[in-house]
Computed example of a mutant assay.
Amino acid sequence: MTAAVQPVHPASTRAAVLHGPEDLRIEELPLPALGPDDVLVQVDAVGVCGSDMHYFASGRNGQNVLRQPTVLGHEASGVVVEAGALAEVAVGTRVAVEPAVGCGRCATCRSGHYNLCPTGTCFGSPPTHGTIAQFLVAPSRSVHPLPDAIGTELGSLIEPLAVAVHAVQRADVRLGHRVLVTGAGPIGILVAQVARAAGAEEVVVTDINDDRLARAAELGATSVVNTASTELAHTGMDRLLECTAVPAVLWQGIRALGPATRATVVGRATPAVDGLPLAFLQRWEIDLGTAFRYAHAFPTAIALAASGRVDLAGVLTGRFPLDRAAEALRAPVQDPTHLKVVVRPGD
């Protein structure tokens, strides 16, 4: 009987390394050895996120600053091609990668809130190398098998869908709710779809880009409003999910809420803002909450996409090979009709 041939672990991988603002280089980097509970993923697709574009444009995203050359990207999918001895994921499994799973040991992680781990890292958040690479070594707990109903490329969009799932859960959207989503970018449109799946009766999406609003309407929003030209007349909404990170938009959305409702900040908040309508919140007992990444949301995201209740293909608008990764990072800014573009490292 012939012994099974063990896969050869690659010594290196080509990757998109950011050295400074607008300085992205395709380089060959050493590939770490697999630990006993690690897997090696051959990356199929990586979605470009707003955080990637911020790092590329300015060398920072919020308060996190590029301090050394770092591989960008955190929205990844691919195929497991090697597995450590303790990894419970079979070679050949198509997976979506959860980029931030916490240390798994601290009290915060043990309580289930691993997205808030004080020492946690995230792929593509400097100085931790990201996923825009041909191969990726990841803990086995951070990969989620994809069912046949989800193509491997679309599996890269499970990560932003998980953001939307967690946001809707944090907002406590319930059956029959009237929901206002501010921002028709990829996250806003996914949030709108998840809110509908959660039972929202009405989902209103606002933006200042008519192309994106049209896509939101195609993908499940019951109505859309261009707030650059039309006053937001909707009032008495039950939930607000703010996805633009623009304070004035949050204040406007809060004033569209009814009594005893909830506003949830989803877009990356600025460090401090002025103008919070605190008296209005207090007078009507409107709760103001936040959502950060996700915890335990990938299985729900995969189930929603596999069932067709969320349309991922409708959000994907562009593909670029690894050698054109810099173009992918510029594309949504240069062409605002783009929603989600992906880098295909194998192309």
Rank of each mutant, 00 (worst) to 15 (best):
T2E: 01
Q6S: 04
P7K: 10
S12F: 15
A15G: 07
A16Y: 04
P21H: 03
E22Q: 13
E22F: 10
D23T: 13
L24W: 15
I26H: 02
E27C: 14
E28K: 09
L29E: 14
L31E: 11
P36H: 15
D38F: 07
Q42P: 09
Q42G: 06
A45R: 09
V48Q: 10
C49W: 00
Y55F: 12
Q63M: 02
N64H: 09
N64V: 03
N64W: 11
N64R: 13
L66N: 06
R67Q: 12
R67C: 03
G73N: 03
V80G: 09
V81N: 12
L86Y: 14
A87W: 07
E88K: 15
V89H: 00
A90Y: 07
C103M: 14
C106N: 01
C109G: 08
C109I: 06
L116F: 15
T119M: 09
G120L: 10
T121R: 09
C122W: 14
S125Q: 08
H129M: 01
I132E: 07
Q134C: 05
A138F: 03
V143H: 02
H144W: 11
L146G: 12
L146M: 10
L154Q: 12
L154Y: 10
E159T: 14
P160T: 08
A162C: 04
A164T: 10
H166L: 04
H166Y: 04
A167D: 01
H177G: 03
V179W: 10
V181Q: 07
A184N: 00
G188P: 00
V194W: 02
G199A: 01
E202A: 00
V203D: 02
V205Q: 07
D207V: 05
D211C: 02
R212Q: 05
R215M: 07
E218G: 06
T222P: 05
T222E: 12
T227C: 13
A228M: 10
A228W: 13
A233T: 14
D238V: 05
L240K: 07
L241R: 03
C243P: 10
P247E: 15
A248G: 10
R255M: 13
A263L: 03
P271N: 13
A272G: 09
D274M: 14
G275W: 12
L278T: 11
F280V: 13
Q282N: 14
W284I: 06
I286E: 04
D287N: 06
T300E: 15
T300Y: 02
A305I: 12
G308M: 01
V310K: 00
A313N: 02
G314L: 06
V315F: 00
T317G: 00
G318C: 11
R319G: 08
F320H: 01
A328I: 11
L329A: 11
R330Q: 11
A331M: 02
P332V: 15
D335W: 06
H338A: 06
V342K: 08
R344M: 13
